[in-house]
Amino acid sequence: MTDAPKIELNGLAKSFGDKHVLRGIDLSVGQRESVVIIGGSGTGKSVMLKCILGLLGSDKGSVKIDGKDATNLSGSALDAHQAKFGMLFQGSALFDSLPVWHNVAFKLAQQPGISRKEAKARAIETLASVGLSPDVGDIYPAELSGGMQKRVALARAIAAKPEIIFFDEPTTGLDPIMADVINELIVKCVREVGATAISITHDMASARKIADRIAMLYEGRIIWQGSKENIDRSGNPYVDQFINGRAEGPIKMQVRKL
């Protein structure tokens, strides 16, 4: 194992027209570390993940994975880069034309020399590790509840044992108990797979549970980062306002006065 951080961002910037979403992000994530990015809606959290994944090109700055440059790749280098990642999407993003088992085994079933039967058996094993019974495998995603869809999506993200997993608002839209179930599954699965994780959320309960370290994104920059134990005494008025959920404070919501 190298000492280089698993993921390193230097001055990463991205604009859409004259809208500057990321204004220079510096962040480094160690091997097998779990970092949670917090921040309000529209602060560029999802865009940051998409830039690291190579789904969006960045304008400035660099992305390094294991110390090697991975900024704005293309062709087969991009394919190899993206193969390292697994991602749990905010809306689960399950393929609704495929049964649950095929969703989970999607990446596996693409590989040559793997029969459908083997792929299905592996999918059912993975489903069991997120607490779903084998009979769930044969139904379609649309027939599942939101919490179960999230668990299937989690199973899909970890099925290929990726080196890095991204969680995009994993608990949004779930009741507090199901949210906690998902949080525990995330912690357990990430540990079992031995992956490095970046999660983005604005659910503080979830952040405290998943994170080794928390970083706060505001107006396209990381304005604070530290261990989760220190978040309550960050001394940063922005962080204090966010974690306590106060409308009054230095962060001004763009609300038009009537």
Binding site: L55, G91, A160
Partner: peptide, 16 residues
């Protein structure tokens, strides 16, 4: 598939 991020999901599953 685009608006529900299923197309992005394909990419993260190593499928063009």
């Amino acid at each position: 598939m685009r608006v529900t991020e299923q197309i992005d999901a394909l990419t993260t599953l190593s499928t063009n």
